[in-house]
Simulated assay, not measured.
Amino acid sequence: MATIDAGTKTGRMLVYRHSLAVRLSHWLNVLCLTVLLFSGLQIFNAHPALYWGQYGADNDPSFIAMEAVEDGNRVKGVTHVGSLTFDTTGFLGLSNVDGEATARGFPSWLTVPSYQDLSTGRRWHFFFAWLFVFNGLVYFFYGLFSRHFRRDLAPAGNELRLAHLGHEVVNHIRLRFPKGAEARHYNTLQKLTYLVVIFLLLPLMIATGLTMSPGFDAVAPWLLDLFGGRQSARTLHFLTAFSLVAFVVVHVAMVILSGLFNNLRSMITGYYAIERGDEQ
């Protein structure tokens, strides 16, 4: 990483940690993934169930399903995960819309648009999906030609030793974050996590999304065989999306715990503050 000194007289110095290309792609990803999540839940609500296999509801058992069912004199929301059933009244399966209990998979405050409209949800989803793909391609080629991947994300051989990884895991559990010169670079857990997200989760989410498109299947029918059918691709798309949500939750928590202002400044201006005297 670049290490431009922008020192101050406060016992700390600023180092240049994130390039403009990385920062722009990061914030565009934040926008795209936010809209993709909420519009994706709108699309899911049109048929709030997931299946393994080729054909879905007619021939394959659901893997996850949300519905509203009658329970005596009342209606309740239930969520099925495999053979397990959970009462999720008020959130999944049955939620309040304008003060009235309404049958829907995810509640209105989690979908774009908030009202049930599959067509509008699909338009939002597809527009930001292609914007996300374009942004990802720009970032990929930047990372390739600028050596960002090799310089900043590829772990060194000694970083992959079990003892080193175990030490970093323990430090994270104890909320002991890198300081001084070590804070100039991503730690090994960050590197491995970002590599998994960039080169596994994101391509899988894009590929399974394309597999659900009949038009794209006509161009690349092998995708249906690769993922075991359109319904299996839909399930994998859903699970991959929520794996990314889990990553974002942990990522935001680490940003807050390791220094919210310092981390935000580095992702807005590029500069990250470290203690003077520990920079060598």
Rank of each mutant, 00 (worst) to 15 (best):
Thr3Ser: 14
Ile4Phe: 13
Asp5Glu: 14
Gly7Leu: 00
Thr10Ser: 12
Met13Asn: 13
Leu14Tyr: 12
Leu20Lys: 11
Leu24Val: 15
Ser25Met: 10
Leu28Asp: 05
Val30Gln: 07
Val30Leu: 13
Thr34Gly: 15
Ser39Ile: 05
Ile43Arg: 08
Ile43Asp: 04
Ala46Thr: 09
His47Gly: 06
Gln54Ala: 14
Gln54Met: 13
Pro61Gln: 04
Glu67Lys: 14
Glu70Trp: 02
Asn73Pro: 08
Lys76Gly: 02
Phe86Thr: 12
Gly90Ile: 05
Phe91Asn: 03
Gly93Gln: 00
Leu94Lys: 02
Leu94Thr: 03
Asp98Pro: 02
Asp98Trp: 02
Ala103Cys: 07
Ala103Tyr: 04
Arg104Ile: 06
Pro107Phe: 08
Ser108Thr: 00
Trp109Leu: 06
Trp109Phe: 15
Val112Ala: 13
Ser114Ala: 15
Asp117Ala: 10
Leu118Val: 13
Leu118Lys: 15
Ser119Met: 13
Gly121Trp: 03
Phe127Glu: 06
Phe128Val: 07
Phe132Gln: 05
Val138Arg: 00
Phe141Thr: 11
Phe145Pro: 03
His148Asn: 12
His148Arg: 10
Arg150Leu: 14
Arg150Lys: 14
Arg151Glu: 12
Pro155Arg: 08
Asn158Leu: 09
Leu162Pro: 01
Gly166Cys: 08
His167Tyr: 11
Asn171Ile: 00
Leu175Gln: 06
Glu182Phe: 04
Ala183Lys: 03
Arg184Phe: 08
Leu189Gly: 00
Lys191Arg: 13
Leu195Ser: 04
Phe199Trp: 15
Leu210Asp: 03
Leu210Lys: 05
Thr211Asn: 07
Leu226Pro: 01
Phe227Lys: 03
Gly229Met: 09
Ser232Ala: 11
Ser232Tyr: 02
Leu244Pro: 01
Val245Met: 13
Ala246Thr: 09
Val252Tyr: 11
Met254Asn: 13
Met254Tyr: 10
Val255Gln: 01
Val255Cys: 07
Ile256Phe: 10
Gly259Asp: 01
Leu260Tyr: 10
Leu264Thr: 10
Arg265Trp: 09
Ser266Trp: 01
Ile268Ala: 08
Thr269Glu: 00
Tyr271Trp: 13
Ala273Tyr: 08
Ile274Asp: 03
Asp278Arg: 12
Glu279Thr: 07
